[in-house]
Design a protein around this nucleic acid. Structure first.
Length: 269
DNA sequence: AGTGCGGCCTGTCCGC
DNA sequence: TGCGGACAGGCCGCAC
């Protein structure tokens, strides 16, 4: 589920329910996420009021006076505001209980997500420190220069969080299609002009997805917040063997670094 | 240093 | 209807 647009949609959805509200504590039902959830989280949070809910890449940063709760949704995580009294469903691993009888509830079947408490600036945390720029700050010149000599496929290159953040598996295929670049091309062989198209395509795809994700904000408080926005918008992802929406040639699927990758052999060179 | 891969988990879907 | 295997939108940590 969560690529950057969904994390951003989540951030916008939960922030108003958290900022300035007093937290009563945390209920940990299953601490076994990617890393164990701090056993004393309840004590750490009790009585505090979040001052900001920020995002860096796909990490959510819940800032408090005494520290920061860093949340990552992994492959299958989601957050929603629920009534604290509402019975948790399977895989509802954690609640942050809010004074008004609601809670922020983390749901994550695969448990690839993470909830990390840090008292240092989260920007200095090892998981966040080495992240590349947000997509809107990743210029064509930067992408091109950094790729000098790189032989890794350009798809891997743009999915590497040290290059830039926010390009997940779906949007990597989508952006490369939009820019007309084959995903297996060596990053160092992609031209300046192509990086100009690619940088613009990444921003366009992500901006559109955020805008579409925003439309699901309305029912954010409803069920599990599963947004269906992307399906109809995808140009190549998941369309193997079906005609390219631009030229009708059949879309191909290849596996790059273990991840499904889709491209049009005519529109992308 | 850059690169590729195994691993973490559960749920779903598809073919037999 | 049951069962095995492939696959799923992330990313760390390690070997080379």
């Amino acid at each position: 589920m969560p690529e950057l647009p969904e994390v951003e949609t989540t951030r916008r959805g939960i922030a108003p329910y958290l900022i300035g509200r007093r937290l009563l504590g945390a209920v940990i039902r299953n601490p076994r996420l990617r890393w164990p959830v701090a056993a004393n989280l309840n004590d750490l949070l009790r009585g505090q009021r979040p001052v900001a809910v920020d995002r860096r890449g796909k990490y959510l940063l819940l800032r408090l006076a005494s520290g920061c709760l860093v949340i990552h949704l992994g492959m299958s995580g989601s957050l929603r505001i629920a009534r604290a009294a509402e019975p948790p469903r399977a895989h509802d691993h954690l609640d942050l209980v809010i004074e008004d009888g609601t809670c922020l509830r983390l749901h994550d079947p695969r448990r690839f997500g993470a909830v990390i408490w840090t008292t240092r600036p989260p920007e200095d945390h090892p998981l966040i420190r080495d992240l590349g720029p947000e997509p809107w700050s990743a210029t064509a010149e930067y992408l091109w220069r950094r790729a000098r000599g790189r032989r890794t496929p350009v798809k891997n290159y743009i999915m590497d969080g040290r290059t830039l953040v926010g390009v997940g598996n779906i949007y990597a295929s989508e952006a490369l299609f939009s820019a007309g670049i084959r995903p297996l091309r060596a990053a160092g062989r992609v031209t300046r002009a192509e990086y100009a198209r690619l940088a613009a395509a990444i921003i366009r795809v992500i901006d559109r997805a955020i805008a579409a994700g925003g439309t699901t904000l309305r029912d954010f408080l409803g069920a599990d917040g599963e947004p269906g926005y992307f399906r109809q918008r995808l140009r190549v992802y998941g369309r193997a063997g079906r005609p390219c929406r631009r030229c009708r040639v059949l879309v191909r699927r290849v596996v790059i670094a273990g991840r499904a990758t889709y491209y049009c052999p005519r529109c992308q060179r």
